[in-house]
């Protein structure tokens, strides 16, 4: 490549050498210069590219005036049109990490410019930009600068010059949760057997398909007296009132709904049906109670086996719905149930 590629750089007030916490309220500024880590970063580009300028913004200012800061920065990046945008590294600094992440995400999504940053794996910014940015895995403090910059620079160089990146392990970035098709010498069955043999022998092996790690919640204490308990009904099976008044998506749900069922004895057709697009709806549409068994809960209430069925039932569509949305739905629904004094919940899934 004959022409040097162009990088624009983002740092906070501290790395921008403006000041510490007392300067965290500074507005974003643009300098046609290499400041702080941008300087060391450019050295690592080995003459293949240059840093055309550094944007500096206070951590508090960015997080308290996100829309305004982002629009200023996006405009600037649009004008300067860099080949790659680089931010941080933010290590484990929360506000700085979130700023780097929000900026990277906006630039990648709105301007379609590749973005590179660096963070410690527990930085809250990681989740925000992981899917669109190359985030180099760094230590939790600025002591890791010397290690982070060469990795960030190497990734930047490759992207700018159209060279294919290696795996996250080879390049040092945090996996983006994508799967790539690659050609390998050994077919799948052979690799699987080899992996199994290694496992049986107690040798080290590397999975080709790491499973997501879920955190666990301690079981809540049991209900002491069911006959006095209020039980709420929830479902991810997409049961909604006919006409789906809140337009809950049939897949990849963006929202949940709640409906007053205090006067109902069942969720029967044709008043209710399923909007879920991930299973054959015939049986649920015949008798929606087959998915969300309000009929039985109301019977148990009448018999005095349980105290009461909570007056609203909660519903969404589970198919293709992201973990982050599911977490959000659960957090929001749980807050309502807690505030309403609900004692226990039945959640059905299809």
């Amino acid at each position: 490549m004959s022409k040097e590629f162009k990088v624009l750089y983002y740092v906070n007030q501290f790395f921008g050498q403006v000041g510490g916490e007392d300067k965290a309220g500074m507005k974003p500024e643009f300098h046609k210069d290499k400041i702080g880590p941008a300087l060391g970063f450019e050295n690592q580009l080995k003459g293949e590219g240059k840093v055309a300028g550094t944007i500096i913004c206070g951590d508090n200012y960015f997080n308290e005036n996100k829309e305004e800061s982002l629009s200023y920065i996006l405009n600037l990046v649009k004008q300067e049109a860099p080949d790659v945008f680089v931010a941080g590294p933010a290590f484990n600094a929360g506000r700085y990490g979130v700023a780097c992440a929000e900026i990277c995400r906006a630039i990648a999504e709105e301007l379609n410019i590749p973005v590179v940053t660096g963070m410690y794996k527990e930085n809250p910014g990681l989740e925000i930009c992981q899917h669109v940015a190359y985030v180099v895995s760094t230590s939790d403090s600025a002591g890791g600068m010397r290690k982070a910059l060469p990795l960030m620079a190497a990734i930047t160089s490759k992207i700018a010059q159209g060279i294919e990146l290696g795996s996250p392990e080879e390049e040092g970035y945090i996996p983006r949760g994508m799967r790539k098709t690659i050609i390998v010498d050994k077919r799948g069955s052979l690799r699987a057997v080899e992996m199994l043999v290694k496992r049986l022998k107690g040798e080290e092996f590397a999975t080709e398909m790491p499973m997501p790690v879920f955190d666990m919640v301690t079981p809540a204490p049991a209900i002491q007296d069911l006959s006095k308990a209020t039980i709420a009904l929830c479902t991810s099976g997409g049961i909604v009132p006919a006409g789906n008044p809140d337009h809950i998506q049939s897949a990849s749900a963006q929202k949940w709904g709640k409906y007053d069922i205090s006067q109902r004895s069942a969720l029967n057709a044709p008043d209710y049906y399923t909007t879920h697009g991930g299973y054959d709806p015939v049986y649920a549409n015949e008798i929606p109670d087959r998915v969300a068994p309000l009929d039985i809960l109301k019977e148990l209430e009448k018999e005095g086996y349980i105290g009461k069925v909570y007056e609203f039932f909660y519903t969404t569509t589970g198919t293709g719905t992201s973990v982050s949305n599911s977490v959000k739905f659960g957090t929001e629904i749980g807050a309502e149930l807690k505030a309403a004094g609900v004692d226990g919940v039945i959640l059905t899934s299809t």
Binding site: V327, G330, T331, G344, L347, S349
Partner: peptide
């Protein structure tokens, strides 16, 4: 959703067919 609701210390039971997912 199950887990986030249980985080409020409300007991919740998951009725599902694919229990490995539960």
């Amino acid at each position: 959703m199950v887990k986030e609701i249980e985080r409020y210390n409300i007991p919740i039971v998951h009725m599902a067919t694919i229990t490995t997912i539960s």
